[in-house]
Amino acid sequence: MTTTDIHALVGAYALDAVDDVERAAFERHVGECESCRVELDELRETSARLADSTWSVPPPRMRGEVMAAIGRTRQLAPVSPAPVRAERAPGRYRRRLVAAAAAVVLAGGASATVYQVQEQRVRDQRTIAAEAARQQARTGQILAAPDLVVRTAPVIGGGKVTVASSAANNAGVVLLGADAPPAGGKVFQLWTIRGTTPKSEKVLAVGQTNVVQIVDGLPGSDMVGVTAEPAGGSPAPTLPLVSQVPLT
């Protein structure tokens, strides 16, 4: 979390709208940041003042008393209103106004927003975990197949490509383990080749040297190849291949 992120937490912290990690980080920070302590105190004071403005139902007799008082009170002649003069509010007063406005907005929306963000984080993590578990189970199923055929080939520059194929599962697993990434900011790209037609199966990230990739329909391919491509990959393999594993 950056310093800017920490400063931005002061409003949410004042309203207890932070998670445990954010709370711990901000509490460490606020002990060393005088400006955040001042702003936190002002937000808390403003929130307390806003909370004091409670409303209650007036007693039924009040209406009658007010109407009777109106009947007894002499009405004044209308007067022209004095012109309103705009004055620039002192800096501290403006700051309190901003704090008050922020407190009102945060009170209405911060809790819901933070809740939605946290819920999205949880959903994202659950999705990632579920996908990882699915991939792991599928990989184990393919590698445990009785008809599994395993082939390997070296990678130019060091490393190895292992291809495990199962006709019964009509799928295979390609394991790339290179000793170093391609030079010049290039990336590894995995291909299956059937006849003379290549198909991209995976583009690695810059600097990435290892991957385990499930490839459906792998037993019908003639070869698995690995190339060094510009970041983001290429639509067709760039020769020469840095590794090739014949499947037939």
Rank of each mutant, 00 (worst) to 15 (best):
Thr3Met: 05
Asp5Tyr: 13
His7Gly: 06
His7Lys: 12
Tyr13Glu: 15
Ala14Tyr: 10
Leu15Asp: 13
Leu15Pro: 09
Ala17Ser: 15
Arg23Tyr: 11
Arg23Trp: 13
Arg28Asn: 13
His29Met: 13
Gly31Asp: 12
Cys33Ile: 03
Ser35Cys: 05
Cys36Arg: 08
Arg37Phe: 09
Glu39Ser: 13
Leu40Val: 07
Glu42Phe: 02
Arg44Ser: 10
Ser53Cys: 11
Thr54Met: 01
Thr54Lys: 02
Ser56Leu: 07
Pro59Val: 06
Arg61His: 12
Met62Phe: 13
Gly64Phe: 04
Glu65Ile: 11
Arg74His: 12
Gln75Ser: 14
Gln75Arg: 15
Leu76Val: 09
Leu76Ala: 14
Ala77Met: 03
Ala77Lys: 03
Val79Ile: 00
Val79Phe: 00
Val79Leu: 00
Val79Glu: 01
Ser80Gly: 00
Ala82Tyr: 10
Ala82Trp: 10
Arg85Cys: 01
Ala86Val: 13
Ala86Gly: 07
Glu87Ile: 10
Arg88Leu: 11
Arg88Tyr: 05
Arg95Gln: 03
Arg96Glu: 03
Ala99Asp: 10
Ala101His: 00
Ala103Ser: 14
Ala107Pro: 04
Ala107Val: 01
Ala107Lys: 10
Thr113Trp: 13
Tyr115Cys: 08
Gln116Val: 00
Val117Tyr: 05
Gln118Cys: 02
Gln125Trp: 05
Thr127Glu: 12
Ala129Cys: 11
Ala129Tyr: 05
Ala132Tyr: 01
Gln136Gly: 07
Ala137Leu: 02
Arg138Trp: 00
Thr139Ile: 03
Gly140His: 00
Gln141Glu: 09
Gln141Arg: 06
Ile142Ser: 07
Ala145Phe: 06
Asp147Phe: 09
Val149Asn: 06
Val150Asp: 03
Thr152Ala: 07
Thr152Asp: 12
Pro154Glu: 12
Val155Leu: 13
Val155Arg: 10
Val155Ser: 11
Ile156His: 15
Gly157Thr: 06
Gly157His: 07
Gly158Glu: 04
Lys160Tyr: 12
Thr162Phe: 11
Thr162Ile: 09
Ala164Phe: 04
Ala164Lys: 04
Ser165Asn: 02
Ser166Phe: 02
Ala168Pro: 15
Asn169Gly: 08
Ala171Trp: 01
Gly172Pro: 05
Gly177Pro: 02
Pro181Phe: 06
Pro181Glu: 07
Ala183Ser: 12
Val187Cys: 08
Ile193Ser: 03
Thr196Val: 04
Pro198Gln: 05
Pro198Leu: 06
Lys199Tyr: 03
Ser200Ala: 12
Val203Lys: 08
Ala205Trp: 15
Gln208Cys: 03
Asn210Lys: 12
Val215Trp: 07
Asp216Leu: 01
Gly217His: 01
Leu218Thr: 09
Leu218Ser: 09
Met223His: 10
Gly225Thr: 14
Gly225Ile: 14
Ala228Pro: 04
Ala228Glu: 13
Glu229Met: 08
Pro230Tyr: 13
Pro230Gly: 11
Gly232Val: 08
Gly232Phe: 07
Pro237Tyr: 09
Leu239Gly: 09
Leu239Glu: 14
Val242Asp: 11
Ser243Glu: 07
Thr248Gln: 10
